[in-house]
Amino acid sequence: MNEERGAATAVRPAEPPHPPDGGGRSVLEGAFALLGAVERAGEAGLTRLAAECGLPKTTTYRLLEQLVELGAVERSRKGYRMGSRIFRLGQGWQPYPGLRTAARAPARRLARLTGATVGLNVLREGQTLVLDWTPGDTAGALGRSLDAGVWPWFTAAGKVLVAGADPRLPLDPLTGSWHRQAGTIRDRGVAFDREEVAAGVCCVAVPVHGPNGAVLASLSAVTDPAHSLDRLAGAVRHAGRAVGAALRGR
């Protein structure tokens, strides 16, 4: 009896592996590739998304329809666009527990005091990622410049973060004067952007330190060229220290 049971076990076929989706890519990798393509395009049709991700059109269609059912993607006039569920999930992300809550009141006070639009920012994948905007009086004048949630690392908000980061962090472009500039930013505790990234947009940014002293984020005040950035810097420093104090529970 035992020999028969062993023989039966030996000939039992193995479970088939989960079929990959194009080029050996897993279903999960294919879905995330599609989400990335939709995000970059804003809106795009099936053919474009399949070509960008290197997936068969039948696979692309199946994955997109599954993402639609989950609320991660929506059908649109031009094909597909990002869904509201991704927005809701993204709003819950933060690089340190309580960071958004700690920044909320200081950011509102800073916007009310200065009229500048205040951003809470982190460095991810070599770019400046805006976690939250607090609109100020100048928000209307800055227009669509504030719609972007991702900026180059060499904004004022990104410079502060890079200056306090690992010096081996791969970034491009790095000018020959960057190391001297980074030392100045660390010494002064503030970085400036005078229309270096977008015309009509100026920025002051300071680091936000966590309980262990590490730089967790940056707090930035975005305004127009009519405002004095040097005068604004003091208020931004004060707000940045208030965020750090809130993180420490003070």
Rank of each mutant, 00 (worst) to 15 (best):
2 N>E: 15
2 N>C: 14
3 E>Y: 11
5 R>C: 10
7 A>N: 09
8 A>Y: 07
9 T>I: 10
16 P>S: 06
20 P>V: 12
21 D>F: 13
26 S>Q: 03
26 S>Y: 01
27 V>N: 05
30 G>F: 07
31 A>T: 13
31 A>Y: 14
32 F>R: 15
36 G>K: 03
37 A>G: 07
40 R>A: 13
44 A>I: 14
57 K>S: 11
65 E>I: 08
66 Q>Y: 07
67 L>F: 01
71 G>A: 05
75 R>K: 03
78 K>P: 08
81 R>F: 00
81 R>K: 02
82 M>R: 11
83 G>D: 01
86 I>F: 09
93 W>P: 04
94 Q>E: 14
101 T>D: 11
102 A>F: 07
108 R>M: 10
116 A>T: 15
117 T>D: 02
121 N>L: 06
121 N>D: 07
124 R>Q: 14
126 G>N: 05
128 T>L: 06
129 L>G: 12
130 V>A: 08
132 D>W: 09
133 W>L: 13
133 W>Y: 11
138 T>F: 08
150 V>Q: 00
154 F>K: 07
155 T>I: 06
166 D>P: 04
167 P>Q: 08
171 L>Q: 01
172 D>S: 11
174 L>H: 11
178 W>Q: 08
181 Q>W: 09
181 Q>G: 13
182 A>D: 06
183 G>M: 15
184 T>H: 14
186 R>F: 15
187 D>W: 14
188 R>V: 12
195 E>Q: 04
196 E>F: 04
197 V>E: 02
197 V>A: 02
199 A>I: 12
200 G>P: 06
200 G>C: 05
203 C>D: 01
206 V>S: 04
207 P>M: 00
208 V>E: 00
212 N>L: 15
215 V>Q: 12
218 S>C: 00
219 L>K: 08
220 S>H: 04
225 P>E: 02
233 A>K: 08
241 R>L: 13
241 R>T: 15
246 A>G: 07
249 G>A: 04
